[in-house]
Simulated scan of single mutants.
Amino acid sequence: MRTGAAAGHEGYYHEAVYYSSDDELLSVLVPFLSEGSEAGEPTIVALGERNATLVRSALPARSRVEYLTGGAVYARPTAAIRSYRRLLAGHLAAGAPQIRIIGELPASAFGATWDWWTRYESAINHVYNDFPLWSMCAYDRRTTAEDQLAEIARTHPRTACPDGTHPISTAYVEPVTYLSEPRTEAADPLQAAPPLADLPEPTPASARAAIRSANAGAVIGDDDLEDLIVAVSEAVTNALVHGRAPATMRVWAGDGRIVVTITDAGPGPKDPFAGLMPATDRATGGRGLWIVHQSCNYVTAVSSPDGFTLRLTAGNPG
């Protein structure tokens, strides 16, 4: 039986926590974690080092709480989804009636890759809904921009408040609608210069060769290079098999990263969760986009009247 504010709720109970001081954060987190521990529910903390230490010192010594390394959990949105689903499935199989998690995004998520993380926060309302999960996502008002706070309200159905209430967010947008909204992503600064490679009708082989050539000066490390090679192979294959001709691929390199765009004249995937959720249907290109999102440090996807563009970034996202 589920406990606390999520009692009687089916599926994922997803909340944002907004705070402007340590005391304000602890006033929400300590009861949430203590009640979960006392109820025998798997109770997990995935915060950065500072806030994890703060929480640990505020909880009773007897509390049964598992601490994850927040930065490692949130390396990439798809990595977080993969690791959390594995964790949740394990607890569910062990008979957990409810799982509690408090997490926070790393500081890097609030920079160039912010849109990727907003899509993550929206998608998980669907992706985790087959688990009895109650999670809170902590956001510091002192360091989070107003436009970012607005997106947080649109991707979190509820708010956990210091007074113990859990109001519904009036700004919340269902994931299918949110993820289907038209997006105009800002170009990477590297794209202001002519591309190092401009391939009309690329093949996976020519795409891989272009990436190796672009990294001749060791712009990115070997691991990032190999991951990007896998990603461009999948992305080009998707464009050729599931997209619409003509397809093009362009490559830029510098400032510790390689940026690649793959464009075709088609409308892009019909599934708004494509790339963010594990897929098993190769015929729709879902598995390929999942691999792309696993393999890059930043991925954007934009549909326009001219076609569909994937932008892949390996190395420092900027």
Rank of each mutant, 00 (worst) to 15 (best):
R141C: 12
S83E: 13
L33E: 01
P189E: 11
P157E: 03
C161M: 15
V173L: 08
P106M: 06
A210F: 09
D188G: 02
G285E: 04
R56E: 11
G268Q: 03
A52M: 10
L312H: 07
V17R: 07
T280I: 09
P267W: 11
H166L: 13
S304V: 05
H91Q: 12
S34C: 10
A109H: 02
N129T: 08
R287E: 13
P162M: 05
E181Q: 14
E41D: 15
S213E: 14
S57D: 15
V259R: 02
G8V: 12
V241D: 08
S303M: 04
G307A: 07
Y19W: 07
D255I: 00
A109Y: 01
Y12N: 15
V30N: 01
Y13A: 10
A123P: 10
R311Y: 03
T203H: 05
H293R: 11
A7D: 14
R62C: 11
T53I: 07
S34W: 11
R76E: 00
S135P: 08
A160V: 11
H156N: 08
I258K: 13
R158F: 13
D227A: 13
W116T: 00
A52P: 09
T170K: 15
H14F: 10
F273G: 00
A245L: 09
Y67K: 08
A235G: 14
G254I: 11
R141A: 11
A171F: 12
T69P: 11
V292Q: 01
G285H: 05
F32P: 11
Y19M: 03
A187Y: 09
A109N: 02
P272F: 01
D23E: 14
G164L: 11
Y84L: 10
V65I: 10
A207P: 05
D224I: 01
G256R: 12
P42V: 01
E121N: 06
L33K: 06
I101D: 06
G103I: 02
V173C: 06
G256A: 07
R244S: 05
T3S: 15
Y18F: 15
A72K: 15
Y74T: 09
T300C: 06
S295V: 03
T3C: 12
P269C: 05
A216K: 10
A187I: 04
A58D: 06
N125R: 03
L289T: 04
T144E: 00
D163Q: 06
G286Q: 02
V45A: 06
E66N: 08
I102G: 13
Y19I: 05
G95I: 05
S37R: 11
A192Y: 02
R208E: 14
A205H: 08
V299Y: 02
L25P: 04
P162Y: 04
Y172G: 10
C296G: 09
R119Y: 00
P42K: 03
G266C: 06
A96M: 08
A123S: 13
